[in-house]
Design a protein around this nucleic acid. Structure first.
Lengths: 142, 142
DNA sequence: TGGAATCCTGAGCCAATCACTCATGATTGA
DNA sequence: TCAATCATGAGTGATTGGCTCAGGATTCCA
């Protein structure tokens, strides 16, 4: 029942991006260094984030990543769904999952559903902007 | 971000136990068969449940397991915390975890905290009795 | 009193996943 | 043309999950 480290890293890195005033692209190396991560690992995470439309990239010298949308428009929930694949506590309540046959009789489904709904409600309106207002340069010991 | 299958199995099995009118011990073999599980695997789960005080066991012929408390007194949240070890989306908000040094600056902690609280709130008052009222003999395809 | 039914315990195993690293290529600016 | 950057895919070592296997301990009952 743990989120993966990708979520932590991705969230922190995006918050760091959001904290920049200038709209200049930030090279991955810099972000990775701040977070105490290898550039290559963070690269993988940013690939996903780019494909999902959270950041855009500029290649070449003076390139890097920028937020593709304003921090106020980025929902933590969406971010986590991207990084985790899915924010469901159990397979049978995943978004793309076809309902299993026994739904009307299933004891556990109601629990998983309620859990999922509560999570969605909790962070469904939280934006990157809210979060990024706490300073983030520090790295976290794991 | 998935719960383990132990949770599903444990929950279903306890619900099945709760569904029995008679207070006679139910042998594991019977429960395992109903759930379509190996006896030995369910045994491991019931060990935990017994140690945590959810069920009590009777050895020997005509032995088996019974609920140690009334279904109305068994909280799903407690059950899941037992089966999952901990219901925290991230290490740093686990119950026994000492606060990490950077708390006041940490961007992500607030997210994990909120997630955890919402889950607790969602199922914190749900009891086994509520759940067990849906019939449970059916097995679920995974 | 012995054997069958049950719970109890610990070890082991295989496949999947996680958190990365390695190697190399493609694009762009100066 | 070269250095800085992103892009991509393969590989790897450790951990975890979901079990199985093997055998023991306790209790009931004929």
């Amino acid at each position: 029942m743990r989120l993966s480290a990708r979520s932590e890293y991705g969230l922190r890195a995006l918050a760091a991006l959001a904290g920049r005033e200038a709209a200049e692209p930030v090279p991955l190396r810099e972000l990775a260094h701040t977070e105490g991560l290898s550039e290559q690992f963070l690269e993988q995470i940013f690939m996903e984030l780019r494909k999902a439309g959270f950041v855009s990239s500029t290649r070449g010298a003076h390139g890097g990543y920028t937020l593709a949308r304003r921090p106020e428009e980025i929902l933590i929930f969406d971010l986590l769904e991207t990084l985790e694949g899915d924010l469901a506590p159990y397979e049978c309540v995943a978004t793309d999952q076809p309902e299993c046959v026994q739904v009307p009789f299933c004891v556990t489904r109601q629990v998983w559903l309620k859990l999922r709904e509560s999570m969605q409600q909790a962070i469904g309106t939280m934006t990157l902007a809210e979060i990024a207002s706490t300073r983030t340069w520090e790295t976290v010991s794991r």
